[in-house]
């Protein structure tokens, strides 16, 4: 009799113990956000202890902050500003991370045949998307000769970067956040963290698995969100992969019924109009960030060809709202909403 009376309470207690173990046995999830690199950064880690998690997260933040200081377009003290000030004058000696991210930006520029171009600076900085300022067509045309990645000289031996023409401006805004996410994940791993996510705004790098053994579940923002309930267009399950999204809804204004956004075609200086959003998935954030922009500029057909050539995956929402998905995402992607 006593045994029967004790059976269900004991079973309940046992189930609570087992459930707690699931969340705590493989470590617990800790998350923290901080304003860095002119955006917000969220670091999520799986760790057996809060102290270890906090130390690692702070290390990740410091890593991103140091890198952000090197390539800050708006800071006179950054290495990037020094390169820009010396355009047409002299090569500038830079640190290893700056040299590396510039080299990688030129690699993506070459592979995309200039659809992504880190020398877009003179064009993009004539626009003000908050104040709805569009430069005149003649101003856009005048600056176009300054946009050409082939006029960037990287000397690996002497660790220098040189812009051949006076007035050229490197702007690494289309690649640096993804690179920062990669650096932060490297720091977390060196601190003994085996799973987590670094999200530098929407540039996300995942590694390892959640405590329950499942991949990380990342939402892709709906480019035509109408209300709070349709924020997510699709979800994707990732582990040890990065994802970035470029969209015409991030920085834009509407003028005379036309949408002007920040993803400029380096060949025309005007916003590219073939897509609403592009998400790219591969192992490194530095490539997801820059290639999301490149594919957006190229449009769905040429963009899909580029992704296939590079062996990367992607989700493209074209200008009419049609979705194009690379075959490699089969089983990983769930479409949630209209877009």
């Amino acid at each position: 009799m006593n045994r029967k009376r004790l059976f269900f309470p004991a079973l309940f207690c046992l189930s609570v113990v087992l459930l707690s173990s699931c969340s705590g046995g493989n470590g617990s999830v800790y998350r923290q956000s901080k304003a860095l690199m002119d955006t917000y950064v969220t670091v999520t880690v799986v760790s057996p202890s809060k102290d270890k998690a906090e130390r690692a997260v702070q290390d990740a933040f410091s890593t991103i902050e140091r890198f952000g200081d090197l390539i800050n377009f708006f800071s006179d003290r950054s290495e990037l500003s020094k390169i820009n000030r010396n355009a047409g004058i002299a090569p500038v000696k830079v640190s290893a991370p700056t040299l590396d991210v510039v080299e990688k930006s030129l690699y993506v520029a070459r592979e995309s045949e200039g659809a992504f171009d880190p020398t877009i600076g003179p064009e993009i900085h004539m626009w003000d998307f908050h104040k709805k300022i569009k430069p005149s067509d003649s101003d856009i045309r005048e600056k176009l000769p300054l946009v050409d990645y082939r006029n960037v000289v990287v000397d690996k031996k002497n660790s220098t970067v040189f812009l051949k023409k006076k007035g050229m401006m490197l702007d690494l805004g289309g690649i640096a956040k993804g690179y920062g996410a990669d650096l932060a994940v490297g720091a977390l791993k060196r601190d003994g963290i085996r799973a987590g996510i670094v999200a530098v705004a929407g540039d996300i790098k995942t590694f390892g698995l959640k405590p329950d053994g499942s991949p990380w579940n990342v939402g892709i923002e709906n480019p035509r969100q109408k209300n709070a309930s349709d924020e997510i267009m699709a979800t994707i399950r990732l582990s040890d992969e990065a994802i970035s999204t470029s969209g015409d809804y991030q920085r834009f204004f509407i003028l005379d019924g036309r949408r002007y956004h920040h993803l400029l075609d380096p060949k025309t200086g005007h916003p590219a109009m073939f897509c609403r959003s592009v998400s790219v998935i591969t192992d490194k954030g530095v490539f997801t960030d820059s290639l999301a922009t490149a594919v957006f500029i190229l449009g769905p057909e040429r963009g899909m060809k580029l992704l296939q050539k590079l062996g990367m995956n992607g989700v493209i929402v074209d200008a009419k709202g049609n979705i194009h998905i690379t075959p490699g995402l089969k089983g990983k992607l769930t479409i949630e909403k209209d877009h």
């Binding site: 969220t42 996300i204 990380w216 939402g219 924020e231 999204t245 998400s279």
Partner: peptide, 15 residues
């Protein structure tokens, strides 16, 4: 509520 986790239980949102 702990950060970027959004609707449908996602762990992060790419935007």
């Amino acid at each position: 509520g702990g950060g970027t986790a959004g609707p449908k239980g996602v762990d992060a949102i790419t935007r």
